[in-house]
Structures are given as C-alpha cells and as structure tokens.
Amino acid sequence: MFDTMTMTKVLGAVCGTFLVFLLGGWAAELIYVGTESHDEEHAQGYVIDVPESGGGEPAEAEPEVTFEEAFEVADATAGEGVFRNCRSCHALEDGSNGVGPHLFGVVGRDVDAVADYAYSGALEEAADVWTEENLYAFLQDPQGYAPGTKMSFAGLRDPADRANLIAYLATNPGS
C-alpha cells in the first residue's frame, strides 16, 4: 500500500503546497508592502503637514460666543431639530414625564416645579428658576453646571444649538 511511488506523490504534494504558500506570500508582499524603495514618489500612505507651533505656546482658542450673541440669532425652527436629542428622555406635553421631567413651559419655570418628578437635589443648589441664561449654561455641560444631577446627557457644545433649543422651548405653550 505504501510503496515508493505513493510516498513520492505525498512528498510532492506537500512541497507543492509549500511552494504555493511561498509564492502567495511573495505576491502579497509586493502588493501591500511594495518595493524597498522609500523615495517620496513611491512612498506608501499620506503625508500630513503639521504647522510648527511657536515655541510651545498654546494655539489660539476660538472666541467663546456669549449667550447674548447666540440668542440674538436664535431660530426656534432649528431648535425643533435640536430637540430630537432630548426626546428620548423628555416630553413637551404637560404632566407626561419620561426619564426626565416634562419640558412644558420650562423657560421661566422654577427648577424643581414638576411635582411628580423626583429631582436629584443638585439642580436646586445650582439655580432657582430656568431662565434662558441658566438653561444655556446647563445645556452646555449638565454635570459641570450641577454636579450630581441625574441628567447623563453630555451637553450641546455648539452655542447656536443651545440658543435655538431654548428659543424652541420658549415657544412651547406655557412658557
């Protein structure tokens, strides 16, 4: 059964398989790695130019938009689109609380005015009334404005989004 010819065929098959793997590895290296030439004309990847900073000085930060500047051009219609971020936890209908309290008439309302909602207590320490300015600061960084608040939302970084959302909430009946 295992004569010399069978052993030769098995050894030939093993060597042939090994040769196929070697040739495949060589071809893949040519395709993905390229040649040993590292000149700029044949360099792999992209070069990203990074401007040199002047002696380790920090880069000039964008000027902070004030509440007044953002609120002058606030658009309630655009704020309705921003409210989509809030819908998962808040409702606009009076008395229908979700994970968070309802936002019916929130602008100008006392901070802990929703009777059937259990507030964390952190908001009462931060403000008394939800004025536009208080909402603007709170929506930027809820945890920074009222440490310990139940609201786990990271905040709205764009000042225009915050102002638009407040303008939309102010048009809500009851505001």
Rank of each mutant, 00 (worst) to 15 (best):
Trp130Cys: 00
Leu156Gly: 00
Val33Phe: 15
Pro159Thr: 08
Asp141His: 02
Asn85Lys: 12
His102Asp: 04
Arg84Glu: 09
Tyr145Arg: 01
Ala118Cys: 01
Phe2Thr: 05
Ala91Arg: 12
Glu36Thr: 11
Pro58Tyr: 02
Asp75Ile: 00
Glu80Val: 00
Gly56Val: 08
Phe71Asp: 04
Pro51Val: 04
Thr77Met: 15
Ala28Asn: 08
Phe153Arg: 11
Ala126Met: 12
Ser53Leu: 15
Glu41Phe: 11
Tyr145Glu: 00
Gly81Lys: 15
Glu93Val: 14
Glu60Gln: 12
Val107Tyr: 09
Glu41Leu: 15
Ala70Ser: 09
Leu30Met: 12
Asp161Met: 07
Leu19His: 00
Val10Phe: 08
Asp112Gly: 04
Gly16Trp: 13
Glu36Ser: 11
Gly108His: 15
Ala126Leu: 10
Gly108Met: 15
Glu36Arg: 15
Gly24Asp: 10
Glu40Pro: 05
Ser96Arg: 14
Gly121Gln: 12
Ala113Thr: 05
Leu165Ser: 01
Asp39Phe: 06
Met7Cys: 07
Tyr32Ala: 09
Glu132Leu: 07
Gly144Glu: 07
Val73Tyr: 11
Gly25Phe: 12
Ser88Pro: 00
Gln44Ala: 11
Tyr32Val: 06
Gln140Trp: 04
Asn134Lys: 12
Ala127Tyr: 07
Ala160Trp: 03
Asp141Cys: 05
Phe153Ala: 06
Val33Asp: 05
Gly79Gln: 07
Asn134Trp: 04
Val50Gly: 02
His90Trp: 07
Glu62Trp: 06
Phe138Cys: 13
Thr35Lys: 13
Val129Leu: 08
Gly148Met: 09
Gly12Pro: 00
Ala76Cys: 06
Thr4Tyr: 11
Pro63Val: 11
Arg162His: 02
Trp26Phe: 07
Ala43Met: 13
Thr171Ile: 01
Tyr46Met: 15
Gly12Glu: 07
Pro51Tyr: 04
Gly121Cys: 09
Glu69Trp: 03
Thr17Cys: 12
Val20Gly: 03
Glu60Lys: 10
Gly81His: 10
Pro142Thr: 00
Ala59Glu: 11
Asp141Lys: 05
Glu40Trp: 11
Ser37Gly: 03
Val99Phe: 09
Tyr46Cys: 01
Ala118Trp: 06
Gly105Val: 01
Leu11Thr: 07
Met5Glu: 12
Gly95His: 03
Glu52Gly: 08
Glu64Phe: 10
Leu22Tyr: 08
Glu60Arg: 09
Leu23Phe: 12
Ala154Gln: 13
Ala70Asp: 06
Asp116Pro: 02
Gln143Ser: 05
Val10Ile: 12
Gly98Trp: 06
Val14Leu: 14
Ala59Trp: 13
Asp161Gln: 15
Gln140Pro: 00
Gly54Pro: 04
Phe71Ile: 05
Arg84Met: 10
Asp158Lys: 07
